[in-house]
Amino acid sequence: MSKLIETNKKDDLRNSRKILVVGVNGLFSDNLMNHCVQVAGRLGCDLAALGVDVQNDGPEFEKRVLGQALKLCEHADRNGIHCTTMIKGGDVAVAVEEAIHETKRVEFVLVDSQAIVEGMNNVSVPVVSVSSDPNHKGDNVMSAHSESSKSTVLAKTAGYGLASAACYAAVFTHANSVAQVFAKGGLYAALPIVTVLAFSFVHGAFAHNLWSLLGIEAAPRDSARKTEVVQKRKVQRQRPRAYAQVNPFHNMDQ
């Protein structure tokens, strides 16, 4: 039994590399969906989602897998990844092997349980499992941290944004008189200089936080970007050889 459901409008027989994502009983965990989209994006692969009807649920299974597959393919589509969906019944390993042959160019298979991996020893491509434990400590810590840092950035952006707006309002509500006083010259020269420095601090901090809030931040430092160094090669100085003189009569007295 094999059925292909085209979720995206593109041709499902694209000659691109694919990752086969397997949902036993038509269930794809959020963890599996997030991970497969991330990996597909990084590797430039398409996704092929396979729902396997192990318990022979029939129409009920098809309804379930359609909902789940739609969610996965929508998620993939949002991130610019092509996604197709398949339904098969019977043994998971057999269904996966069939899907690999039908889909072509499957790089590896992603599943969300180590138990499923153990049952697929004879599958012709590597099978990788993704932990879907909702109580996974790492995930919880990460998301809590990211949420708190995002709210801090939001608060800072709002704070500096308000301060910046207040500074601009203070100057531009009396724009002409301020401009005339600032253009008096002589010692009044300090006024425009101090003002631009103060504005660059407040508005600069706002701009920094605004870009962070929008997710535009510096890429991590890359060690490969260091420039070639022109320096004379150090001459390896010959180290003096250490000689130890062993006194054969050292312990004679004891």
Partner: peptide, 23 residues
């Protein structure tokens, strides 16, 4: 500035955009 040639209004408007751009 000592010659009184700086128009602070123009400076601050340009600065509003350029501080976003430079970052």
């Amino acid at each position: 500035a000592m010659h009184g040639m700086v128009d602070i209004r123009l400076v601050l408007i340009i600065l509003a955009g350029s501080l976003l751009g430079v970052q």
